[in-house]
Structures are given as C-alpha cells and as structure tokens.
Design a protein around this nucleic acid. Structure first.
Lengths: 336, 336
DNA sequence: GCAGGTATCGATACCGGTATCGATACCAGT
DNA sequence: ACTGGTATCGATACCGGTATCGATACCTGC
C-alpha cells in the first residue's frame, strides 16, 4: 500500500501551509475564498480523508458518542441504537456501539475502553452500573445519559421509565379485568434486571389484592419464541386453572400465544397473555396479547438529543425524561 | 472536572520516567519486575485509563475493527454483529459499528469516517459498495471482509453465500414438492438488494420449469410481520389459486402464516409459505414455514477471525468462505 | 582487574493534526 | 504620507502517547 495522504500533502498540492489547509477543510474563518477552494479541490483530488486520531488528540475532543448496550440479540436494543443513530445524522457526531452481554465487569471494560477514545458523550443502558463504572463515567467530564430505566440513581441524565411501575400498572389493569389466577414465565432473568423489576412491580400489585403468582417458570433461554411456547405448554399443563400469564417480554409471550392457538385454547377469554415492549411481532395476531408499549427509538433519539444539546450549550444540564409506557390490553379491553 | 490523568502522572507517582511507565503498562520487555509492579499499582491508584488517541496516533495502529451494516432493525445484522463481538473478546480488538440505512452515499461517508480512525480491519455488509467506497477500502491497507453475500466481486475477503443460488434452490425444492402456482411478497426490495437477488434466483428456477410468479406484491414496509399478514390477505384474496408464496424473508412470511392460521387456510397443504433466514420466530409454529437457514452469527465470527488471523500473520491473505444456507422444508417435507 | 555482554532505563524525536499568536499586506480615514 | 484596523496566512508549540537508540549499571569469564 502507498503511504497514506496527510494534511501536508494537501497543503503542498494547494500551495499553502498545512495550517491554512487545516482551516480550509474545517471551514474555519481566516481563510480567503480562493485558498479555501483550492485546498478543498486538492484534498478531493488526492483522496485525503483526514486522521481523526491526530485531530482529536490535538483538539482534546472527538465527535464520537459512545453507546453501550447489554445485548444485540434482543431487538429492543438495536432499536434504541437506531434512534441514537438517526438523531446524530447531520450533527457531525458519530455513534460508536459497545456490547456488554449483561456482564458488569465487561461493562466496566467496555466503558473504560470507550472513554479512552475521548468521546464527546456517552449513552449507557440501565441504571445498574457497578460503582467503578459509575465513577469512570462521572469523572469523564462529558454528558452521560442512562437510558431505558429510571428505577435508580442518575449519573447525569436519564431517559427511560420505571419498569417496576410498568409491571404494577399491567397487573392492576389485568386485575380490573377480573383475572385472578396468575402465572409467570421469564427468560434470562439472571441478567435482565429490568425484567426482574417488572415482575416485582407486578407481584406488588397482586399482593395488594391478596394474590400471588400461582406458578412461575424461569429459565435461561436461547430462542425466546420457541422457549415461550414450550414453557407455556408446561405451565398450563401443570396449572390448568391459570387465567392469566405474565411474561418477561413480548417474544416469550408470543411463543405462548402460538402454543395456545395451536392447542385451541381461547385467548384472551380462557387465558390472558401479557408481555412487554409492544414489539412488531404482536401484529401477527393483533390485540391478542396485552403489552406495555415502550418507545425504544424515541428514547435513543432523546438521549442523543440531550447530548447534542449539552454539547452545544457547553455545559452539563442534567435532566431526567420519563417516557411512560402505555398499557395496551387489546382484545381483553373489550371484555367486561 | 479535574484534569485527566496522563501517563506522566503515573510515571511521577511510580518514580520512573514516562517511557518506563508506558512499557510497564503495555507489558513490553525491558522493564524490571519491581518497576513494573510499582507502575501498575500507581496506575490503578490514580485511576489512569490511557488515551487511545495518542497511543494509536503514535504507533500507527489501533485496536478497532470497523463493522458496517445497513440496518439495525432487521435482526439478522445485529446477530452478525454479535458474532463479530464474540470473536473479538479476548483478542484485545474492539468492534466499532456503523449504520448506513441501505444508502450508498451514507455508506461512503460511514466508511470514510471509520477509516479516519485508522482501524486495524474492516467488515462491511454485502458486495454492492459504490466504486469510491471500494477504492477507499482497498487503499486502506488493512484487511477487509465483506459479509453476508458472495454474489459479487471481492475487495479482499468474503464470508457469505449466494443469495441468488439460495433462491434457486428453494424454488427447486418447492417445485419438486409439486407446487405450481407461485406468488411473491416482498418488503423493502428497493434497498435490500440481497432479497432482490433471492427473488431473481427463485424466478430463474421457475422459468426453467416454464413457470413464473402469478402474482407479486412488493412494498416498503414498517412492521414486517404486520405487513406480511396484510399483503398475504391481499394476494390470496386476489389470487385464490396460489399454492405457494415466496417471501422476502421470514418475518414477512411469518405474518403470512398468521393470516393463514387466522383464516383457517391449511398450511402447508393448501398453500405453502417460504421465507428466508431461519429466524427464531419460526419456532412459534415449528415446521410450517419453509426457509433457508443462514448462519449469521457464524458469518460474523468467521469474518472477525479472518481479520484477527491476518493481523497476526501480518500479511493480507484474501480468502472467500462460503457458508451455504440450508433449505428446510419443514412439514412440507412430509408431503409426497 | 578488565573486556564484553545483558538488563534496565531515559532523552529525544516523532505521529498528524489544531491552537495561538505574531507577521504581512492591504485598505480606509485624516 | 501616516496611523490604525482588518483580512489572510504561517511558524511554533503543543496534545499524550510510542519507537529508537544511547547511557548506565551490573554481571560474567578469563
């Protein structure tokens, strides 16, 4: 490969100093229109693309926004990332994504490595960071936004909602519809603390009515839909009297719905199914699964906006934005 | 915020020069065990996390692997990213993801910006890059791997398969099962060139048997499952004689299955449905949709391995790995 | 005791940009 | 003609690390 082009090559080609070339390319002032044009033309001709490393090192700032998510295989996180990505288009900022696999030590590692690229801001998922991670973030001196969850202490800003409250609200809605015998099915609860909080919130509401889950199956899962189907078969076989099942999320609930449809069990009359997220998959059988719709894209978008805003304002303005999930009962709503 | 710690702070704290500190932290040779220990201890105490910008600028290399995908909302790409991410754990390399939204100009932009971080390697999706993008990549002097598609010219290495062949194979399998009246339903074909190639391959096989699609509905979609359901209703209403529908992918096909189950149409006896990817969602109704299973995670993993390997070997060894999809007919296989 | 080798360390020169400030040229106003 | 101001540009000093090479100390064998 040929040596990579540097700013000096551009400057030489344009017949100016590298400083003038630098200014011209960045649209800085103090450059005549004529030089500017010559430099830009020269840069294009020799195929110059700059070196962010040097630029950021020198200017003590980069245009990277670090985004840390626990998983890529749960579609809600890519959707949130998508919102971030969209919000940053045209701002000159660029997202960089990192994955933690729901592991707090990995998260520390990933955050540390990201910070060492001196990003302009960071977006991290959830509020359950370890103490060292929180310290890293809060000492970084850049805007930090925690997303997807508001059941905890803020490092700086938060865009999310209370999973606990979402669980409670869903339980209350189902109770109001006369459901009494509840089962719970969950996947990956070890690591997914937010799903655990939803369950807790749900349980709280049940207890307030003197009830509790009559059965509960939790398991580390691979295929959410397939496992949801299998676990639903198991729970309904072992507990044929259940009239409502709360799932850790929509994927698993949808698997349950597939089982019920396949075995001819009436949904939601005979047994009501309730998930979480309002995923697109539910459109396969509209209204049959009660869910809480969460605005993942909007959350990602809003988080990015906070960072863009506080970079422009050149000051940290911590804020907390709650994007309340909406409880949708679907067909269940039409029953008395 | 307090001034960020630099290597000099660590060196001072440990009572050595910054050069010795640098060597100690990187595990370089030429450092006594005693100094090494003191430096590492000092670094931990003052919370030093390095500055990748300076390190990479100076050493002319970074530990970033750039990964460019067209979309985050189509689950197959996050799955491939996941494979990359896994493969890089423990290698000291770090993935950085970029999104193009299926836009060739955005792709050029994203690739250019990534390259200006001087990554150690790049993984890009597909083989349909624009000429300028290809030039950027091939001149970067780093290992490049194109993934997910082998129907085109390689820049360097390729890990993928022929979508065209996959379409052909599926059509042949369905023809062999006696299907004769085919419909096609596709979402987002404008941008998803690979889905288009599958359709072409499928059509090729039909023509060889003197057949063709009797009906075809394509549309830019939002919710694949929901749109698949609606489009299937439409195509079957307008063409009640179809005995097989090929979809652009499994999501859309699954929506179609939901419609058929809901309206009591026998699948696959009355009408066979065929998708692509072997998604987990199919486990909701195992075997009812014929599909081609693609190894997204493995593709991502293999691509990352190629880069890791060629970095270790310090030479570019272009290779092409074909991970052939497997055509699964499911329940259809049990019909004569 | 001395030559030659090895282990350890630090001074110095970069890497490729940007910030800063001074130099130069040119203009208008008096 | 001279002064003061503005527009344009370049020399220089960094940013925070790493590569290189020379310096020093210590050890070994004869």
């Amino acid at each position: 490969m040929t040596k990579r082009k540097t700013l000096i090559d551009v400057a030489t080609a344009a017949g100016v100093s590298k400083m003038t070339a630098s200014r011209a390319l960045r649209g800085d002032r103090d450059v005549s229109a004529a030089s500017k044009e010559r430099v830009i033309k020269a840069a294009k001709e020799i195929g110059y693309f700059g070196n962010n490393l040097a630029a950021s090192l020198s200017s003590e700032r980069s245009d990277i926004i670090g985004v840390v998510v626990p998983s890529l295989t749960n579609i809600v996180f890519p959707q949130a990332m998508s919102g971030v990505s969209d919000a940053l288009v045209g701002t000159g900022l660029q997202p960089a994504f990192g994955v933690t696999d729901y592991d707090l030590d990995r998260e520390y590692e990933v955050v540390g490595r990201m910070l060492s690229w001196r990003p302009a801001g960071m977006i991290v998922t959830g509020v359950d960071q370890s103490a060292p991670t929180r310290q890293l973030l809060s000492e970084a001196g850049i805007p930090i936004v925690q997303i997807m969850d508001s059941d905890g202490d803020a490092i700086d800003s938060i865009v999310g909602f209370s999973h606990r409250a979402a669980g409670t609200e869903m339980a209350q809605a189902l109770l109001k519809k006369g459901r009494q015998r509840f089962g719970y099915i969950g996947c990956n609860l070890q690591s997914d603390l937010r799903a655990g909080r939803r369950r807790q919130g749900f349980e709280d509401a049940l207890r307030q009515s003197g009830l509790n889950f009559e059965a509960s199956l939790t398991r580390e899962c691979l295929s959410s839909v397939g496992d949801g189907r299998a676990l639903t078969q198991q729970i309904l076989t072992e507990n044929p009297d259940l009239d409502c099942i709360y799932y850790s999320n929509d994927d698993v609930a949808f698997g349950g719905l597939c089982y019920c449809l396949h075995s001819g069990m009436g949904v939601p009359d005979r047994v009501a199914l309730s998930g979480f997220n309002g995923l697109g998959i539910l459109q396969g059988f509209p209204g049959l699964i009660a869910t809480s719709t969460t605005l993942r894209r909007d959350i990602g978008h809003a988080a990015a906006d906070i960072i863009v805003g506080s970079l422009k304002a050149a000051k940290r303005a911590s804020q907390t934005i709650i994007m309340q999930p909406q409880t949708l009962l679907g067909a269940l709503d039409e029953t008395p």
